[in-house]
Design a binder for these strands. Structure first.
Lengths: 212, 212
DNA sequence: ACCTGAACACCGTTCAAGT
DNA sequence: ACCTGAACACCGTTCAAGT
């Protein structure tokens, strides 16, 4: 399966001078702007470079190929969501498990909704670009924070196993993605949030109950 | 958002003579084969045509553009999964709700696992190609069958509302996708199946309980 | 009604030359 | 250390010509 063997998505070199750092930042922003104004299949390396005010050659000095660029932008987006989740995990320490889940899931959903446009656009391009790897990394990262948080719940004898937490995260991130792409109304998104909380709470309750 | 305005993915014309039907079928199969042997970003319209034993011009007679071709192949894959789900819904009529959910979710997971390779490959290309629309259509279709089935459960006063069923489907399809792309082992996939059943059962139990 | 394949426009990527 | 942009290979799509 040659399409699965994707490994080299790291930036080609790291900026050491200040103008280079500026350049990379400009390329990042230009990518998102081109994505919005021209759409995914008119996102051209030349267009991104133009918009960033540099030449294509410069772009290729920092990103080995177009995929690496998109990968990096996608990664940045998911990192921002992860930070919000981790902050919620910190705040919810010591609360009852159901309240924990509520707070974390709501933080996740809110973060996604705030950046709904970017999220939809990025998922569209990320799939063909090694995005699955980023999603996996993000789930592991958030899963760790959630596991640690659940360890402080007074009403839980032992936290659920890692796998259950990861499935839960895969489920809500998948569900979220599907609904966002369908372009839900604000009312639908509110109901979605409420139901994702229910889904996670009931699943966690079941999983922690059936442990011995 | 120009990237969201995707509408014309229908085949350009329908084959009326027999050799034309053969041609279209050959193009379909060639697409999947090229996807496997060359990977997503080496999938070329010329390569597909070559493999199918026709010229590019012929391919473009039936599919207005590359995206439409990939869209059609993706749609076919999801339709096959839907059929399996609907068959399970038929079989499970009259059973208790928990048994229904188990049977349907297992049918879904099994169908996905059997075609794991194709599923992963197709999701990768489908995202940039209007695949969200197909996913939505599939969820609505399966949701309808599941709703009807739940209406025959003796232990349920009233079936859960449509939205809850759709969220459940979005969650398991998203979760499934994420795990498949991460390339789970057979043991992991077995555990995944078991947990997706638990997740759906507990969510459905919660949602039907809190109705009035 | 269906098929062919050369031709065109455009895009990803490189690299010799510049500051 | 960083930037430029013309040049090259390749891909999506078309269309005049064929059966």
């Amino acid at each position: 399966m040659p399409a699965n063997t994707i490994t080299a998505f790291e930036p080609r070199k790291t900026p050491v001078q200040e103008r280079a750092a500026t350049t990379v930042q400009a390329i990042f922003e230009a990518t998102i702007q081109v994505l919005f104004t021209h759409g995914a299949d008119r996102l051209t390396t030349t267009r991104v470079a133009d918009r960033a005010g540099v030449s294509v050659g410069t772009l290729y000095q920092y990103f080995p190929h177009k995929q690496a660029l998109l990968y990096a932008v996608f990664e940045k987006h998911l990192d921002e969501v992860s930070e919000r989740v981790e902050a919620a995990c910190q705040q919810a320490r010591g609360k009852p498990a159901a309240a924990m889940i509520k707070q974390v899931v709501e933080a996740y959903v809110d973060a996604k909704i705030e950046r709904a446009d970017a999220s939809v656009a990025l998922y569209r391009v990320a799939a063909g670009v090694g995005g699955a790897e980023v999603v996996r990394k993000t789930i592991l990262r958030s899963g760790k924070a959630i596991g640690a948080m659940l360890g402080t719940a007074p009403d839980l004898e032992s936290p659920p196993d890692k796998f259950a937490v990861e499935i839960m995260l895969a489920a809500i991130s998948g569900g979220m993605q599907t609904v966002l792409r369908a372009g839900g109304s604000p009312a639908q998104l509110r109901k979605l949030k409420e139901h994702l909380v229910l889904l996670c709470q009931s699943y966690m309750a079941t999983v922690t109950m059936s442990r011995r």
